[in-house]
């Protein structure tokens, strides 16, 4: 799980946060409320999830409960790959 968390954090920093420091993103911080990812960013994120973890994200699964923080993403990936 912690490896997944690190992989997700790396992706978010590389693609959306660039100049931010590690402390600027908590693992429970909402991407939506913090303004980290926008609607097109979500599409990039989903594409990356599918490629990186070899999973298929169904349209019904595009909800904040699955995608809106590092920890939620990690838990979603764990469920999908279990």
């Amino acid at each position: 799980m912690s490896e997944t968390v690190n992989t997700i954090r790396r992706f978010i920093f590389d693609n959306f946060l660039f100049d931010a420091g590690e402390d600027d993103l908590g693992n429970d911080d909402s991407f939506l409320e913090q303004g980290i990812i926008d609607s097109t960013g979500v599409l990039e994120l989903v594409e990356w999830l599918e490629e990186t973890f070899s999973i298929s994200v169904d349209d019904e699964e595009l909800i904040p409960e699955n995608l809106d923080s590092v920890n939620r993403l990690a838990a979603y990936v764990a469920r999908k790959t279990a």
């Binding site: 991407f31 990812i37 609607s39 349209d59 019904e60 595009l62 995608l67």
Partner: peptide, 8 residues
């Protein structure tokens, strides 16, 4: 106005 989660 976020349009991040179209299902919502």
């Amino acid at each position: 106005q976020s349009f991040m989660y179209p299902n919502v």
